[in-house]
Design a protein around this nucleic acid. Sequence first.
DNA 1: CGCACCCTTGATATCTTTCAAGTCAGGTGG
DNA 2: CCACCTGACTTGAAAGATATCAAGGGTGCG
Lengths: 242, 242
Amino acid sequence: MLTSCRFCPLRSYPVFAPMSSAEADFMESFKVDEISVPPNTTLLTEGYGSEHLFTVLEGVGLRFKLLPDGRRQVLNFLFPGDFLGLQAGVMGEMKHSVTTSSAMRLCVFRRSQLMSLFREFPERGFDLTWVGAVEEHFLGEALAQIGQSTALTRVSWALAKLYRRARAVGMVEEGACRLPFRQRDLADALGLSLVHTNKTLARLRILKVASWSGDWLRVHDFETLARLGQVEGDLTEQRPLI
Amino acid sequence: MLTSCRFCPLRSYPVFAPMSSAEADFMESFKVDEISVPPNTTLLTEGYGSEHLFTVLEGVGLRFKLLPDGRRQVLNFLFPGDFLGLQAGVMGEMKHSVTTSSAMRLCVFRRSQLMSLFREFPERGFDLTWVGAVEEHFLGEALAQIGQSTALTRVSWALAKLYRRARAVGMVEEGACRLPFRQRDLADALGLSLVHTNKTLARLRILKVASWSGDWLRVHDFETLARLGQVEGDLTEQRPLI
DNA sequence: CGCACCCTTGATATCTTTCAAGTCAGGTGG
DNA sequence: CCACCTGACTTGAAAGATATCAAGGGTGCG
């Protein structure tokens, strides 16, 4: 049984721009399936197209690129509400891969119907462009942090961002949330070596700012974490839900 | 007198996806003006919206973000064919600033007509999403390079990319093109100090791979440059022209 | 028990930044 | 014409940050 878009639990979170019931109804006709996958499932592969596009309903994962020399760059962490496969949809092939870190539940759409979405519901087409712009914005911010900061700043920035994103979709309880990523994932996201990432996480733990171990992130002093990570404002901007 | 989109000189370059004459005609009705601006003109400002959206016809420039501590991250270099203001169009405000490095000529569109573009010509809406995806792709690649490479690789990567982009829009003649950027711009793009960028450029000059000085980039050995910069394939992918 | 995977820690090597000076060309006013 | 200034580029030496190498510890699991 598929979750009805009208009653999609994600719609209630204020991070997501309101969706009219006409839009929700239309999305429901666009949605072709709903699937559950285990951790470490590859959903999309760099260099390949995809018959299907997805929206994350539950669970977390990674977007990443593999470099010619075998290293890996994690581009972003996936949370509920994220739309997957936009590049495959418009460019024909993915420019990065997507994999799950926890079990994940996803809405499934058909790529071949994408153009008809633009035709039949232009507002949704607009929102899809918006989603792309949000991703671009995030990567720009990441580039600025990775390019110009020290390890402590980078790690703090990442933890603050992760914490805020988790909180926005109701994953935080009592200052803690389950984030089943590996230190390797964070290192690959920040362009740091695993060893140095580990030592920096240890510093934050000793400073009693945030501690991340055993799949759980606990933030003891968000204000300090945000300051160290040069993260400004608490207002999480709205973005559309596809 | 405005350049007619039908006869836009950029359409002849193979980097740009073909545009039907119906599309060109529609774009012509969407285009409201054409302007020329001097070097060092701020076209769009981070944090602000914009009444107008642009497409670069001639000239080069920069997209950049200012960081809280005063540093600057250059996100990308602008070339003819680039569309400016997508974020302002869909998110309401720019997430980075845009400035010119040379004199520049631009097509001008009206932001308030953007939604009607999605409504009246869904294919163009699709292309706009595509443009966003291309930008996302580029930033992902930049993140991977900046995050995980040594200075020589980063600089080689940037020069190879700049050279290819310039060549794709006919700016290269006899292995050289005019690129009126400063070393500071490159340093801010790559997250390197100005001093180290300078020394790395000197190395490439000594190696007789590429020399960039006095506004001119001369590439003597593109193959080596591409190898050093881990740039693969010469096939420049098509992207839509807006 | 042994193995695989992940996290942790110390010592050393490498790269990059910072600091400090110096060059060079163009522009300006006496 | 020259003195002076400014912006951009160049170079060397020392300080700082991060990577790499190496080894050990913990946990879950067949």
